[in-house]
């Protein structure tokens, strides 16, 4: 504990503050409680249909591929078509997300669906997003058995299903809904905000898509979710 007291003590001395100063404590308490939003760019503040379009456009701008389907039942067919188009083996990895589980995967005869955390052999992962963020074309996913975090990073292809109704204008809206789900001050173990496939520009500032994470990010937006 000496390190703790040492650092806190030095900080207080430098700031000329006293431990237990009621005004400062209150200022911090109120700031945390209020969680003011600050400046929210106008870009994402649109009618919902336009937010969905903006989301798709921004995601494509960062090299994600986007496909819109009418209803959840169409997702397995879309996934199978993606695998064929990319010449990938007919197998996907996913968690136990109820929305994914309710989809008619069994109708895709040759498609193998493995559930649970990803392993290094998986080539394609399928996740269901908590939300989409129109402002930047970002998908938000959180850890747990429904959508294990390894599915987001180990496979070379990551397919993310997003319900159009879950697409929001800005990150703040998504953070607020997380608070609703988990309670104020609480978070899932991992929140992943993913904007495009993995990339690197570390060799001569040349942009290369597909670094350590997925080489491809395919978003399936479900309109009638």
């Amino acid at each position: 504990m000496s390190g703790r007291e040492g650092i806190i003590g030095k900080v207080r001395t430098a700031l000329g503050a006293k431990a237990g100063d009621a005004a400062r404590t209150r200022a911090v308490h109120e700031r945390l409680l209020a969680a003011p939003q600050g400046v929210i760019p106008a870009r994402g503040q649109l009618p919902h249909a336009k937010q969905v379009r903006l989301f798709c456009m921004m995601a494509e701008k960062v090299s994600a591929s986007v496909q819109r389907v009418k209803k959840p039942d169409s997702v397995p067919r879309a996934v199978a078509a993606y695998l064929r188009a990319k010449n990938l083996p007919s197998a996907v990895r996913m968690g136990s997300d109820e929305r994914l589980a309710a989809m008619p995967w069994h109708t895709m005869k040759s498609l193998e669906v493995k559930t649970g955390a990803a392993d290094p052999e998986d080539e394609v992962g399928v996740s269901h997003a908590l939300a989409g963020i129109a402002e930047t074309g970002t998908v938000a996913l959180y850890s747990g058995p429904r959508n294990p975090t390894t599915v987001n990073f180990l496979p070379e292809h990551h397919i993310v299903v997003v319900d159009a109704k879950d697409i929001a204008g800005d990150m703040e809206t998504v953070l607020a809904s997380l608070r609703q789900t988990f309670g104020k001050g609480k978070m899932p173990r991992t929140l992943n905000l993913i904007t495009g496939p993995s990339r690197s520009a570390d060799i001569e500032q040349t942009l290369l898509v597909g670094a350590h994470g997925p080489r491809a990010l395919h978003l399936i937006v479900v309109d009638g979710g």
Binding site: P145, P188, I194
Partner: peptide, 22 residues
């Protein structure tokens, strides 16, 4: 010059009881 970096990851504590990874 990106609007967002590809991965923004918010981590809170270790693996939870029902987490399959982490």
């Amino acid at each position: 010059g990106q609007d967002m970096s590809v991965y923004t990851t918010v981590s809170t504590g270790p693996r939870r009881p029902d987490d399959p990874d982490g």
